[in-house]
Computed example of a mutant assay.
Amino acid sequence: MAQAPSVADRISRLRENENLEEAARAVLKHLGELKRPYLSEFEEKLLGFIEQEYGIVN
């Protein structure tokens, strides 16, 4: 069974997108600076929304 990508991997994949808007970049920067290995429910929704908007599917 494949392991789900880590938060850092998910953020890295999104940052590779050249068309990423500044607001999305700011959210990803903040999420990347968190000092914990998990996201809150709200943070997870934000990251998932950005992934959907840019066609990144887990």
Results as ranks from 00 to 15, higher is better:
residue 17 N to C: 12
residue 15 R to Y: 03
residue 46 L to M: 15
residue 18 E to K: 13
residue 13 R to I: 06
residue 18 E to D: 10
residue 16 E to S: 03
residue 24 A to T: 11
residue 15 R to Q: 15
residue 1 M to R: 10
residue 15 R to F: 01
residue 4 A to W: 04
residue 57 V to M: 12
residue 4 A to P: 10
residue 19 N to W: 02
residue 56 I to G: 00
residue 16 E to D: 10
residue 55 G to S: 05
residue 28 L to N: 06
residue 14 L to E: 09
residue 3 Q to E: 15
residue 39 L to V: 02
residue 57 V to P: 00
residue 4 A to D: 08
residue 8 A to F: 06
residue 49 F to K: 11
residue 58 N to A: 09
residue 26 A to V: 02
residue 32 G to K: 05
residue 24 A to N: 14
residue 27 V to W: 05
residue 40 S to E: 10
residue 35 K to F: 00
residue 31 L to N: 02
residue 8 A to P: 09
residue 20 L to R: 05
residue 47 L to S: 03
residue 50 I to Y: 05
residue 19 N to P: 00
residue 39 L to Y: 06
residue 17 N to K: 12
residue 3 Q to M: 10
residue 34 L to W: 02
residue 51 E to D: 02
residue 13 R to E: 15
residue 37 P to Y: 05
residue 17 N to I: 12
residue 7 V to S: 00
residue 2 A to S: 13
residue 40 S to Y: 00
residue 32 G to H: 01
residue 14 L to H: 01
residue 16 E to L: 04
residue 24 A to L: 06
residue 2 A to Y: 10
residue 7 V to H: 01
residue 17 N to R: 11
residue 48 G to H: 11
residue 54 Y to P: 09
residue 15 R to T: 08
residue 16 E to V: 10
residue 16 E to Q: 14
residue 2 A to G: 07
residue 25 R to M: 08
residue 15 R to K: 15
residue 56 I to V: 15
residue 14 L to N: 07
residue 18 E to S: 15
residue 47 L to Q: 01
residue 44 E to Q: 12
residue 39 L to E: 03
residue 7 V to P: 00
residue 9 D to V: 07
residue 42 F to I: 04
residue 6 S to M: 11
residue 15 R to S: 12
residue 5 P to C: 06
residue 46 L to K: 09
residue 11 I to P: 10
residue 13 R to G: 14
residue 50 I to V: 14
residue 23 A to F: 05
residue 39 L to A: 04
residue 19 N to S: 12
residue 39 L to K: 03
residue 20 L to W: 03
residue 42 F to S: 04
residue 55 G to I: 07
residue 5 P to I: 09
residue 13 R to V: 12
residue 31 L to K: 01
residue 35 K to T: 04
residue 30 H to W: 09
residue 12 S to I: 02
residue 57 V to K: 13
residue 54 Y to M: 05
residue 43 E to P: 01
residue 8 A to Q: 15
residue 53 E to L: 11
residue 46 L to I: 04
residue 46 L to P: 02
residue 24 A to K: 13
residue 49 F to Q: 14
residue 18 E to N: 12
residue 28 L to G: 06
residue 12 S to W: 12
residue 29 K to T: 11
residue 43 E to S: 04
residue 45 K to A: 12
residue 56 I to M: 15
residue 48 G to P: 02
residue 11 I to R: 08
residue 39 L to T: 03
residue 42 F to W: 03
residue 56 I to R: 06
residue 37 P to Q: 11
residue 57 V to N: 13
residue 13 R to P: 02
residue 6 S to I: 02
residue 55 G to F: 08
residue 34 L to H: 00
residue 51 E to L: 01
residue 37 P to I: 04
residue 37 P to W: 06
residue 4 A to I: 03
residue 23 A to Y: 03
residue 28 L to P: 08
residue 53 E to W: 02
residue 40 S to I: 01
residue 17 N to A: 05
residue 42 F to H: 01
residue 46 L to N: 07
residue 8 A to H: 09
residue 55 G to C: 08
residue 8 A to D: 14
residue 15 R to N: 10
residue 30 H to T: 07
residue 12 S to Y: 09
residue 15 R to G: 01
residue 6 S to T: 15
residue 32 G to E: 10
residue 19 N to D: 15
residue 35 K to W: 00
residue 9 D to T: 11
residue 57 V to T: 12
residue 35 K to R: 12
residue 7 V to T: 11
